[in-house]
């Protein structure tokens, strides 16, 4: 042995420390030089594990980001759904307002034409039996209404008041089997009586077979009887049958008013008290 055994540790320590110091000195003096061979070796050896770590971390980060994104997306989705719901409600309200305005405009136009005091009422209930067709409105004698007054909608004649309370009135619709309205066919000026037929609509009666009636002819009020003003539409001819026995032809009329969708009506109150 070159060194005595008791100096072996000191020698080894000195050698290693010296090597480390040489390395430091080399690094300090050659700062700009290329990476050393051993350093490159270690870096190369570290590469697979670093790459694996980075891949794993990347996957983990992506999953986490995706999770966070999904959480954010879910929250945003919930917020947008709520917003959408709110906007839909607003849209419905605006649409309702628009439709109300359209109906009211027609009613006002009607008022100008007829020179009457219109009482606008809201439909609050409907009678749903097959033959008897009536509705309840939220106006009554307290609003100047009385039995017999004609009731119109923006689509034409709806019916007339048959019962009148202080704040509620019943309207017998023109499709009720008890309803009879004096009408005339607009094109041929033929008179007849429009009788309600329940769910089937209306039937125009007492039109002689000699009269020419066509499908699609408008049926308007004749003004006779003193209830309904003249010239307001009630419906159109849906079917004509002259083969039936008897003097008169059978004429089915499709009411112009869609009673299922009736929401507001106007009761025509003659302006007896109006000053000229």
């Amino acid at each position: 042995m070159m060194f005595p055994k008791k100096y072996w540790t000191i020698t080894l320590a000195s050698l290693l420390i010296l090597a480390a110091l040489i390395m430091i000195s080399y690094h300090a003096t050659k700062q700009d030089s290329d990476t050393g061979f051993f350093r490159r070796l270690v870096l190369e050896a570290a590469w697979p594990l670093e790459s694996l770590k980075n891949t794993s971390l990347k996957a983990l980060r992506e999953s986490w980001d995706r999770y966070l994104f999904l959480i954010g997306l879910e929250a945003e989705n919930r917020r947008l759904r709520k917003e959408n719901h709110l906007l839909e409600n607003q849209l419905v309200q605006y649409r309702e307002g628009y439709l109300d305005a359209l109906r009211l405009r027609k009613i006002l136009k009607l008022q100008e034409q007829l020179d009457i005091i219109p009482v606008i009422a809201e439909v609050i209930d409907r009678e749903q039996s097959p033959l008897f067709k009536s509705i309840l409105i939220d106006k009554g004698t307290a609003h100047g209404l009385k039995v017999g007054l004609p009731v119109l909608s923006d689509q034409g004649i709806a019916g007339r008041i048959t019962e009148c309370s202080w704040h509620i009135s019943r309207i017998m619709l023109v499709v009720d089997v008890n309803s009879n309205v004096s009408v005339l066919l607009q094109r041929s000026r033929t008179h007849g009586v429009l009788q309600g037929a329940g769910a089937a609509g209306c039937r125009l009666k007492y039109v002689p077979k000699a009269e020419e009636v066509k499908v699609g002819d408008a049926v308007i009020s004749s003004g006779l009887g003193g209830i309904f003003p003249k010239g307001i539409i009630l419906g159109v001819v849906a079917a004509v049958d002259k083969k039936e026995g008897g003097f008169f032809q059978r004429i089915d009329v499709q009411p112009s008013v869609d009673f299922g969708k009736l929401e507001e009506v106007v009761v025509l109150n003659p302006q007896k008290d109006r000053k000229p």
């Binding site: 090597a19 480390a20 390395m23 430091i24 080399y26 690094h27 051993f38 350093r39 270690v42 870096l43």
Partner: peptide, 20 residues
């Protein structure tokens, strides 16, 4: 120490010296 120097990008020999 040398591996740590390489891995940490520190001055070659610093951790080598310290570890020794």
């Amino acid at each position: 120490g040398f591996f740590l120097d390489c891995a940490m990008g520190s001055i070659s020999g610093l951790f080598t010296l310290i570890y020794v």
